[in-house]
Design a protein around this nucleic acid. Structure first.
Length: 493
RNA sequence: GACAAGGUGGCUGAAUGGUUAAGGUGGCAGACUGCAAAUCUGUUUUUACAGGUUCGAAUCCUGUCCUUGUCUCCA
């Protein structure tokens, strides 16, 4: 029997503002769509946080025994830089600046995106479709919406008629906005004469002659509107109604609102059962922005090549840092916070790697079954990873006690503990052990062992000047000696 | 301005009406050590502000302030 039948999962649904019991549309299967990156520059850390939250959600759903089809798109066309001025595609603009073909830009940053995600130990989505690969599907949806009267053509462009849609449905139900308020708050129109209403959004945009990315359509050469790709790809792979749609908080309006409108106009029903929004990442209490310099790229954290941090941090440390916060909270990144997470991460992993060697006894001082139930109940409560981690540290405490011989565990409980810890730490949270691949070559360990030997001899002779020199010089090289009861070991930091 | 998400200890961050507000980290103390580090144990401090509802509020209501997001593409 799959786990999910015994684990009542609850999800905070942004559409209703409530935590709801999750019931899959088709028993045992989950369809999940997450808005992917626009590949016109390096993926930034806030992006990573959102995708990491959904990676964890994907992992937990799988752990529960669901067959999950996880679709995360690549936006490689269709976003306007400034629709009032030049109507230039964001990717096309960047290409001109860098003297590259648009698809060359797309390729470069798609590779960057995948490289970073791989370092963070992301699972690949089931399908990673591109917007440019689904132009035909998008055109079909536009035709359909036009035929149903919720869109209109102007000069080779097609716009969604929000006011018309709002007569029979509700535009703004996801973001809590009212169309009347939006109209009242709209400032004077600039060059938006084409639209009947400033709230209308483009389904198809006419391409000006200088526009490089363009496709033929019944309305002339152009490119699809910026909200349409997600509707086209999600419905193509997951159906007209599917279980979970995720994305960053910033996409709630207008992007997700428009997705709902498009799907309802075309298919006549609400596309998504559970809307999930991940919150933002700030740095040193302020928003990240390239313009103010309060910005950091993932690669700069891994290398330590930046002004914000005192040192480099491993991807798993960053992952652990992010998992310590709930995905719906704003998370603030700082050097101090990362240092704290690094220590906690190391302590957790140290204990995890000790479980195997624990001796077993006649009875258990630790109620493993009750503890497992607490772990699941944390995750079932809207994927509460911070609480799960708190429970993991309870286990750490017991592991250390057992190691010291101050508590015991039966063989059966030890097996249970091992399986559960591994499942949550590695499968669900996606953390990794010893990823630093530290130059643990035989040569290095041979040299260090030799120095440890020399230091031991110096200590035996009470030549502490020599022994401390060895210790301190190695530390300066990033090699930490650890004196224990059973001799000295070392770690490459 | 409107809408949305937040504001909890030195830092980070859980908990949505019910005994001493989780966990990590830091500080302090102890064990270990030649001294440290690492490790282990113990301990310390807090619900933005002002009102209100309640036997009881971090949690619900009202107002104010602050942060972040959105209102043009954006995780």
């Amino acid at each position: 029997m799959p786990l999910y039948q015994n684990q009542p999962l609850h999800i905070y649904n942004s559409l209703t503002g409530k935590k709801e019991r999750f019931v899959a549309l088709n028993d045992g299967y989950v369809g999940m769509y997450v808005c992917g990156p626009t590949v016109y520059s390096n993926v930034h850390l806030g992006n990573c946080r959102t995708f990491m939250s959904f990676d964890m959600i994907f992992r937990y759903l799988r752990h529960l025994g669901y067959k999950v089809r996880y679709v995360r798109n690549i936006t490689d066309a269709g976003h306007l830089v400034d629709d009032a001025e030049d109507g230039e595609d964001k990717i096309a603009k960047k290409a001109r600046l860098e003297k590259l073909e648009p698809m060359e830009v797309v390729q470069r940053y798609t590779v960057d995106f995948h490289t970073i995600l791989e370092k963070f130990n992301f699972l690949p989505p089931s399908i990673e479709p591109t917007a440019t690969g689904h132009i035909i599907e998008q055109i079909e949806i536009i035709k359909d919406i036009l035929a149903k009267g919720y869109a209109y053509k102007v000069n080779g462009s097609v716009y969604f008629d929000v006011a018309k849609f709002n007569e029979k449905a509700t535009y703004g139900k996801l973001s809590g906005r009212k169309l009347e308020d939006m109209i009242a708050n709209t400032r004077a129109l600039n060059a938006q004469d084409e639209k009947k209403n400033p709230q209308d959004f483009a389904l198809w945009k006419k391409a000006e002659p200088q526009h490089i990315m363009r496709w033929p359509s019944p309305w002339g050469d152009g490119f699809p509107g910026w909200h349409l790709e997600c509707t086209a790809m999600s419905t193509k792979y997951l159906g007209e109604t599917f279980d979970i749609h995720g994305g960053g908080m910033d996409l709630k309006f207008p992007h997700h609102e428009c997705e709902i409108a498009q799907a309802e106009a075309s298919y006549g029903k609400s596309p998504v059962r559970y809307w999930m929004h991940a919150n933002m990442l700030t740095m040193n209490g302020k928003k990240m922005a390239k313009s103010t310099g309060n910005n950091i790229l993932p690669g700069e954290i891994f290398s330590g090549e930046n002004k914000v941090l005192s040192k480099a941090f491993a991807p798993s440390v960053v992952r652990f840092f992010m998992m310590q916060a709930h995905y719906t909270s704003i998370l603030d990144l700082s050097d101090e916070a990362l240092l704290a997470s690094e220590k906690g991460y190391q302590r957790l992993m140290e204990a995890v790697s000790q479980i195997k060697g624990l001796e077993t006894g006649e009875k258990s001082d630790f109620d493993v079954n009750a503890w497992i139930a607490q772990c699941y109940s944390a995750m079932n409560d809207d994927f509460n990873t911070p609480v799960l981690i708190a429970h993991l540290f309870e286990a750490v405490k017991h592991i250390n006690l057992i190691k010291k011989g101050e508590a015991t565990l039966t063989a059966a409980d030890k097996q249970l503990l091992t399986d559960t810890v591994n499942a949550f730490v590695f499968d669900v949270l996606g953390l990794q052990l010893h990823e630093e691949s530290q130059a643990n070559s035989e040569q290095l360990s041979g040299v260090v062992e030799l120095l440890i030997q020399l230091r031991m001899e110096a200590r035996a002779n009470k030549d502490f000047a020599t022994s401390d020199t060895i210790r301190d010089q190695l530390a300066a090289l990033g090699i930490q000696l650890k004196d224990g009861k059973e001799g000295t070991t070392f770690t490459v930091l």
